[in-house]
């Protein structure tokens, strides 16, 4: 398959700076007893400095695997088959494990969906933050002064994520915190070294709505204060609508649509995005009927080159049998659908 050059998102500000992270034609596969599952097949996307990029998709869309690949966290029986992951011009796929470890946590940090299992239950919260600081913060002085400084920064991080009386709670264990607080702690650990890029994998899926709102606002607030980029991986288009500048919609291991959030939501170009939007009950208009997408996500084994949404698409045509690349679909937008070009011409 060919690598598609995605149109650069244009903004009112004019030319964008170079992306912080640029993924090109990424392919990640997993070996299973049924065959090789191509979880990510040819994903390309960019994350620009200071932006919040939403990555939306259902289970099996490859959204989490894409960023596990970026972090070098794909474990056997999975592997990155092909593609480039450019972080500020360096290809992460060519780095050694040691170089990657040095980058992880310091430049790029990731928070996991399930904070309870992602945190080490045997270590206090403070120890876990200090661990990251010791591993990455080069500016810490040696000896006792360094330890005191690291501790001070750990308290500062807990304070930053809104944990009351942070100095005391540093000595507590993860199970002593509520779900929302644990998610905050994971964000604190991720932010300990002030990364340029925070990848938040379903940060609020396990949380109640009122707590979800708190955590998302916290991420937005810290992004503004530290000037970092955030990738928000989620299945919830509502969360994207509220918090993300741009959105990447993924389906069955591919990017199917990308563009500025507002534009994509108000005028989706890909039938999958349209279907997704139609299947969500909207508080603003409950008389509006919800229309589910029929069928199931295809299994990602031995897929033919046809459009992956073909089995569920209400607008399918015989031409969909041939493979489709991303096509430009308006300013800063692209979609993987053969109808896109026609629509623009019409």
């Amino acid at each position: 398959m060919t690598t598609t050059t995605l149109p650069r998102p244009d903004t009112a500000a004019g030319d964008r700076p170079e992306p912080v992270l640029s993924v090109r034609d990424l392919r990640t596969a997993f070996k299973t007893s049924h065959g090789i599952v191509r979880a990510v097949s040819g994903v390309s996307l960019d994350v620009y400095p200071g932006e919040c990029l939403g990555v939306v998709g259902e289970s099996g869309s490859g959204k989490s695997v894409t960023f596990a690949s970026v972090m070098g966290l794909v474990k056997k029986p999975g592997w990155v088959e092909d593609g480039e992951i450019l972080y500020r011009g360096r290809d992460l796929t060519r780095l050694s494990d040691r170089e990657l470890r040095a980058l992880r946590g310091k430049d790029i940090a990731m928070t996991m969906q399930d904070a309870l299992t992602a945190l080490n239950p045997a270590l206090t919260v403070g120890e876990q933050i200090l661990e990251v600081l010791r591993a990455h913060a080069d500016d810490l002085p040696r000896g006792r002064a360094g330890r005191a400084e690291a501790r001070r920064r750990a308290v500062e991080m807990l304070d930053l994520v809104g944990i009351p009386s942070p100095a005391d709670r540093l000595n507590e264990y993860p199970h002593q915190f509520s779900g929302g607080m644990r998610q905050r702690i994971m964000i604190a650990i991720a932010l300990a070294c002030r990364p340029r890029l925070l990848i938040a994998d379903e940060p609020t899926t396990a949380l109640d709505v009122t707590i979800q709102a708190q955590v998302l606002e916290l991420i937005a607030d810290i992004r503004a204060r530290l000037g970092m980029s955030v990738v928000l991986i989620t299945h919830d288009l509502g969360v994207v609508a509220e918090h993300c500048d741009r959105v990447v919609v993924m389906y069955a291991g591919q990017v199917v649509e990308t563009g500025p959030t507002r534009a994509v939501i108000s005028d989706p170009k890909h039938p999958y995005t349209q279907g997704l939007l139609d299947s969500i009950p909207r508080l603003s208009d409950l008389s509006h009927p919800i229309r589910p997408i029929q069928g199931q996500v295809p299994e990602l084994i031995d897929l033919p080159p046809e459009c992956r949404f073909i089995g569920r698409c209400p607008k399918r045509t015989p031409d969909c049998r041939t493979g489709i690349d991303m096509r430009p679909a308006g300013p800063g937008r692209a979609a993987r659908c053969i109808l896109v070009g026609e629509e623009t011409e019409a």
């Binding site: 509520s178 709102a213 288009l237 603003s284």
Partner: peptide, 20 residues
């Protein structure tokens, strides 16, 4: 607190502090 698709940020957010 419920995220809204069509009118993001429209509802004046009532912030609840603390946990259940």
């Amino acid at each position: 607190a419920a995220p809204r698709l069509d009118e993001p940020g429209k509802a004046a957010r009532i912030k609840l502090t603390g946990d259940l």
